[in-house]
């Protein structure tokens, strides 16, 4: 069967076309909002104005194209609700990614550093950092990302530890939300939500079902769902046609290969 020995480069070209060509067309696809996305949205929506929300950028540069639309939507929602953001990163690459993203969205929405958000930067050894912030955030982060004393900012002078933080949102491409649940959640009763890459989704269902995570949003589809709830069209929506055709191609390839294999066996 010639079909079964198809050159890999032909498959690569098909993938390139299936994902690339739909990007040239702006076809808005309606997106249904899932249960998990609603949970995260309402968790943020129910936080009183002016409360502190901690956004931990636990990601690496490799997953930025997937996570960025989702992180943007979450930051927008927090700013819309006038929540005071505490940004930080438990992966070194997340430090620059988180800072860029927060400053970019804050500039667009007219938010001010020091009163609406601060960025604490990176700490190595995430278990100690997570546990340490339960005792005192100042102990773990004496200075912010640009090495300024963040306690001098009027909006953050009263920030002590998790008791003052309404919600921690771990924006992650790996296992970091697990550590937030295990150390901040179980020891300090901190509420935690997760914004994840799609590949990590199945790993976190036990935590959402048990209530250890208040909810999770995952992947580009999750970003599109969140954008729908916020009423704007961003990177998540832009990618949905390509995402659909990419999936359709892989489903088709699997079916064709299985049919060819069956015919060969007969």
């Amino acid at each position: 069967m010639r079909l079964l020995s198809l050159d890999r480069r032909i498959i690569y070209i098909l993938v390139l076309l299936a994902v690339g060509v739909p990007l040239l067309f702006r076809v808005p696809l309606p997106v249904k909002v899932g249960v998990e996305t609603r949970k995260v949205h309402s968790a943020i929506d129910n936080i009183p104005h002016g409360s502190y929300v901690m956004l931990s950028f636990d990601i690496e540069a490799s997953s930025l194209p997937e996570v960025k639309p989702l992180a943007e939507a979450t930051v927008r929602h927090c700013f819309q609700r006038d929540l005071r953001i505490i940004g930080l990163a438990l992966f070194s690459e997340g430090a620059a990614i988180g800072y860029n993203l927060l400053v970019q969205v804050a500039d667009e929405m007219g938010k001010v550093y020091g009163s609406d958000y601060i960025y604490l930067g990176f700490r190595p050894q995430y278990v100690s950092a997570i546990l340490g912030m339960g005792e005192s955030i100042e102990d773990v982060f004496p200075l912010d990302y640009l090495n300024n004393d963040w306690r001098e900012y009027p909006g953050y002078a009263s920030l002590g530890n998790y008791d003052d933080v309404a919600l921690v949102i771990s924006i992650a491409d790996g296992s970091l939300p697990t550590y937030w649940v295990e150390y901040a959640g179980s020891r300090y009763n901190q509420k935690i939500a997760a914004c994840l890459t799609a590949a990590m989704t199945t790993s976190y269902y036990p935590y959402t079902v048990s209530g250890q995570l208040v909810g999770m949003v995952s992947g580009l589809k999750g970003a599109a769902e969140y954008e729908t709830m916020l009423g704007y069209s961003g990177g998540g929506h832009r990618g949905m046609l390509s995402q659909s055709s990419g999936h359709a191609l892989i489903i088709l390839l699997v079916i064709v290969a299985n049919v060819a294999e069956l015919r060969k066996r007969k």
Partner: peptide, 15 residues
């Protein structure tokens, strides 16, 4: 979900 993730990354770069 892994397929979904990888396609999303490619979308980002092609975009």
């Amino acid at each position: 979900f892994t397929v979904m993730s990888r396609i999303s990354l490619l979308i980002g770069r092609l975009e």
